[in-house]
Amino acid sequence: MNLFRSEEHIARWLAGRTPGTTITVSKLCELAHAWWSDRLSPGWRPRSRSESQAILDRLGLTGPFWRLP
């Protein structure tokens, strides 16, 4: 899970490997805040799978790649 200069850099880095998925850094930042902002909260509790999936869905991160087990 890495940041890259551009999609061209990703394609070169993959060197023929099967790609995963690419999102913009703005979407990543949005995801990070939705996913991690409660981690130091005194009231933190484990999220259920459906709660985690709802975060991804709400951000438009849908499809098989973003489907949690």
């Binding site: 899970m1 890495n2 940041l3 890259f4 200069r5 551009s6 999609e7 850099h9 990703i10 070169r12 880095w13 490997r17 790609p19 995963g20 998925t21 690419t22 999102i23 913009t24 850094v25 703005s26 979407k27 990543l28 930042c29 949005e30 805040h33 991804l56 098989p64 790649f65 973003w66 489907r67 949690l68 087990p69």
Partner: peptide
């Protein structure tokens, strides 16, 4: 950047990145 090795420096201000040209890749699915 794992491809070219160039340094990437991004500021985060008010929950927003200050360089929106970068992209993120995950090889592994959820």
């Amino acid at each position: 950047c794992p491809d070219c090795g160039d340094p990437l420096v991004i500021g985060v201000h008010d929950r927003r990145p200050d360089d929106e040209s970068l992209v993120f890749h995950s090889l592994v699915d959820a």
